[in-house]
Computed example of a mutant assay.
Amino acid sequence: MLTRRSMMLASIAAGVTMTSSNAFSKAAQPSTPVNFDVPAGACDCHTHIHGDPEKFPFFAGRVYTPEPASPEEMTALHKALHVERVVIVTPSVYGPDNSSTLFGMTARGPTARGVAVIDDKTSESDLDAMQKAGFRGIRLNLATGGVNDPNVGRQRFSGAIERMKARGWHVQLFTSLAMISAIKDLVAAAPVPVVFDHFGGAEAALGTGQPGFDDLLALVKSGKAYVKISGAYRASKLAPDYADATPLAQALIAANAERIVWGTDWPHPDSVTPAGKKVTDVTPLYQIDDGRLLNQLPVWAPDAAVRKTILVDNPARLYGFT
């Protein structure tokens, strides 16, 4: 039986280009100009596409419903930021359906790579098609799903590594420092790259001495894990510059700049359904100034050569840009 997923994969593999007709997105655009020279080939390593829900229906088991965010809006974002490349990550609202991510990647062309969400029904032929389309990793979203049990986390991480080791894709985790501490031995032994989202789940207000941050630093220093210094507003509440995230970013960069990548987390979904609302009610996107967000990078990494490592060299190696 030809499923919707297999039809989408086939169309992507055949090079079919799709266009978006959605004109109602409210995703933020930068209001602050970038204040430093962004190197050629820079990459935003953490974004999402929320397609027209009639074409790309949400997962029934989701915990929130975001506003739309189109490929055209993403292109406008990156033009303003002087960022050439992008990594599009399948968000939890789609479950293991990567169609909206594939749609965004196709619209962007060869400057895009993808990170997929898979399940036991995802076949090796599905993964083959996704690899041809530009996917280079899979994501385990333990945070949004509320997975706090270390035994569950270890089992899911081990299963992901087992599936990816022959393919060479990386495994990306959105999780907490406590979970990172619980699986640090598995990460150290992993035969594929491991990538932690959003400062590894660290809380900026707790500083570099918070429990588990030393384990994260050790994995980065050893080269066994990458960390995305992305979505600073998720680690910090001190808008608009998130100054208390600076010590976290600087500590991670000092540990091993060759294992750090940067991302916006555009279009900035709020993954918590407000009290009194249903999961199916649309939750507005955060209105984050990504120009101001990118301008924190020279604060975190004053050396232009280090910024090039973070923005260009590391993503090229991790995601296979040429």
Rank of each mutant, 00 (worst) to 15 (best):
M1H: 07
M1P: 12
M1T: 12
T3D: 06
R5D: 07
M8C: 04
S11W: 01
I12P: 00
A13H: 09
A14Y: 08
T17D: 11
N22V: 12
A27L: 09
A28K: 11
P30E: 08
P30W: 06
N35P: 00
P39Y: 12
G41T: 13
A42K: 11
I49D: 09
G61E: 06
R62D: 02
R62T: 02
T65E: 08
E67G: 07
P68Y: 06
P71W: 05
E73H: 07
A76G: 04
K79F: 01
L81W: 08
L81S: 09
H82S: 14
V86T: 13
I88E: 06
V89N: 06
V93I: 12
Y94F: 15
G95T: 03
F103K: 12
R108Y: 14
G109D: 10
T111L: 13
A112S: 13
I118L: 14
D119V: 13
E124G: 15
F135E: 07
F135S: 07
I138A: 06
R139L: 04
L140W: 00
L142S: 00
L142R: 01
A143G: 00
V147Q: 01
N148R: 15
N148G: 01
D149W: 10
G153E: 01
Q155F: 04
S158G: 15
M164Y: 06
W169P: 05
V171P: 09
Q172A: 07
Q172V: 01
S176T: 15
S176F: 08
M179W: 03
I180A: 10
A182D: 03
A190R: 11
A190H: 09
V192S: 12
V195A: 09
F196K: 06
D197C: 04
E203N: 08
A204I: 03
L206N: 14
G209K: 07
F213C: 12
A218D: 14
A218Y: 08
V220T: 13
G223P: 03
A225H: 02
Y226F: 15
V227T: 14
I229Q: 00
I229F: 00
R234H: 10
A251V: 05
N256S: 04
N256G: 02
A257G: 02
E258Y: 07
R259I: 01
V261Q: 02
V261R: 07
H268R: 01
D270Y: 00
D270V: 10
V272P: 00
K277T: 03
K278N: 14
K278G: 15
R292C: 00
L293P: 01
Q296P: 00
L297S: 05
P298I: 01
A301Q: 12
A301H: 12
V306M: 05
L311E: 09
L311Q: 06
L318W: 09
Y319R: 04
